[in-house]
Amino acid sequence: MDWQNFLQLVLSGITIGSIYAFIGIGFNIIYNTTSIINFAQGEFVMLGGLILYSFHQTLHIPLIPAILLTLILVTLIGIGMERLTLHPVKNPTVLNMIIITIGCSIFLKGVALSIWGREVYHLPFFFPRPPFQIGGASITTQSLVVWIALILSSAFLYFFYRFTLLGKAMRACSVNPVAARLMGIKVKSLVTLSFALAAFLGGLAGVTITPISLMDYQRGSLLALKGFAAAVLGGLGKEFGAILAGMALGITESLVAGYISSGYKDAVSLLILLFILFVRPGGIMGSKEEISLREL
């Protein structure tokens, strides 16, 4: 058994899994306050990468300000999306909402296509140092960037939800929006906040992963699907379930790519998604009962 190879695959699986985790958390945040699945979640990632390219490579803005500007811009786009498209809908049906977020996804893809075309874009590593060696496997500095970004974001979210009034209000919203409203919580503002957070996280994912796996205008959808798989696998709405699930998904995919075939690796995650949806929609941390009781 070639442990080095195995370790290498696991490590790169953790990196890509972190991206799925970012996206999954984004899904959870929006789902918790609105019960909507935001089909445009992947587009935030895509925009993160492409916008950073424009700021940093095309306009030659130095890295750190460029990253900040990118994140701000993507967050604003998320807010804009919520305010302009979901907010005005009067009697939202599930189908309406799905279609609107799909429309946003297409629109953002279209914008990206118009601005950046069909090319694949590349960003240099943030820290141009040689990779670290651990147990015969190498970890690039960019992978570390991704991991640290995830750890910091999760820590921030944890403290936010547990210790700030705003965070507690968001949790209240997800449990019972009517009661929340009655208690004076401005649900509408929280919805906007959740889109902002989800967009920010998506943008962060895009910014950190593009140096490793490149970015183009239509990569958002596949990422979104896998991020959604992570969210469902970890229990939709359970914020941190997506992290473990994302890792599991990423590692599985990486191992499949390494040992079986890289052409089918995407299909593996998707099959896992279908499997989870069909067999245990409550996710590993949820329960079958949950879904059926909700229907009665």
């Binding site: 909507i36 699945i37 089909f39 599930v94 189908l95 799905i98 959808s221 596949l222 699907l225 959604f228 798989a229 469902v232 052409g263 089918y264 995407d266 299909a267 998707l270 099959l271 998604l273 279908l274 949806l277 069909f278 067999v279 929609p281 879904i291 059926s292 229907e295």
Partner: peptide, 23 residues
Amino acid sequence: PSLKLKGHYLAMATLGFGEIVHV
């Protein structure tokens, strides 16, 4: 299996199917 799925879940499952075919 989709019989038990509602709205978003169903949408995602069918989306996943289409993508699998593409892959």
